[in-house]
Design a binder for these strands. Structure first.
Lengths: 205, 205
DNA sequence: GTCTATACTTCGATAGAC
DNA sequence: GTCTATCGAAGTATAGAC
């Protein structure tokens, strides 16, 4: 047993808890209404001590937004690289959902609290977001070129529609509800790929 | 010319400008970061005078959220009542978009700043939101029963998927962009009803 | 209906001891 | 690395004159 091992309840160093605890608070209360005093209290330290771990409140928000986008882009990029073109979009949907739901506090914060960032940092996060959007759009364009996705709607709008569908699911998906993550991915893939009138069985035969 | 007619630039009474100006600020800055001082300034009055028009800042937020939901529900309910069942969903999509885009500051605020409301008022707005959701779900269930919408996905999830698609479009739709509102409605209807592989022409035949 | 003035609260961040 | 103490700024709302 290493000598420095802390014997606190959670057994996780305070420095490693700052980001997840802050993301959970930002999601629940919003960035502006989350006070550094309350954040410190939840970490079990005084508000003054918090500044040993962070440079400032806005730094915290930037790290949360930026890392959420870095992680999801890497996950989707890796997973789709090896997939055949007919299956790439299914893989996008599944990996995007896994990443967004695993990191749901950070993703919710990134989606909703971006406006609270300073101008330069907001621009940096928007660049990352645009880059991820471009990854998805490229996959859709490839799918169109291969004839597996309709070409009568511009890839741009198919991309935005897909991201609407995926991103905002984290606000109503309940991990303890009747649907598993995989089932949610199957449902959203069915809706996006085949549509509400497509694919499945009808009630009246 | 009525004697009380004001000769201000906008020719609109301050009392009628409070809600729209506040909604625009809440959308841009967030509720918490919007100060009543700045709101008063934009209305051309002092901060103390603002309280002649409002009871409190939270009252303003509640009115914005509540009226956004009241208007959209009434618009969609009226428009769908007369439509034949095969066309009801197209009407939902079009009317929802028209209402949300016409009132986009209020809708964006309702979607994103709900958490800033007091517990009781938040619950009241959530009740309204659930009621609107139920209207949409009922229409989807009727469509399923009529055999015009797939029955292998629960109406609940088709509803949530549709609302994802519609609601969050207001955050990227640009009224001055290449797409008109009607064209956006057509695109989203095509995606939701027929899916990304459905309906249209393919690139390679 | 609009003003000025201000009471009261809360916040982010820092200083400096230990 | 954590504490106590506090500075300076900003916020919501109210009081009371006009």
């Amino acid at each position: 047993m290493p000598r420095e091992r802390k014997t606190v309840v959670s057994d996780v160093a305070i420095g490693d808890r700052v980001i997840p605890v802050a993301a959970a608070m930002f999601r629940r209360l919003g960035y502006a209404r989350t006070s550094t005093r309350e954040l410190a209290t939840r970490l079990g330290i005084q508000s003054g001590s918090l500044y040993h771990y962070i440079n400032g409140k806005d730094d915290l928000l930037y790290q949360i937004c930026s890392s959420a986008l870095t992680h999801i882009e890497e996950a989707v990029r890796k997973a789709t690289a090896a997939a055949p073109v007919e299956r790439k979009l299914e893989v996008v949907i599944k990996r995007h959902l896994i990443s967004a739901l695993t990191d749901s506090d950070s993703h919710a914060t990134m989606l909703v609290e971006l406006k609270a960032l300073s101008a330069e940092r907001k621009a940096a996060v928007i660049r990352q977001r645009d880059q991820y959007e471009e990854l998805i759009r490229t996959i859709i364009e490839e799918s169109q070129a291969a004839g597996v996705v309709r070409a009568d709607i511009e890839a741009k709008y198919l991309t935005l529609g897909l991201l609407n569908l995926l991103n905002w699911s984290i606000f109503w998906f309940d991990p303890d509800g009747p649907l598993t993550e995989d089932e949610l991915a199957r449902v959203l893939a069915a809706v996006f790929l085949d549509g509400a009138r497509g694919g499945g069985a009808r009630a009246s035969g």
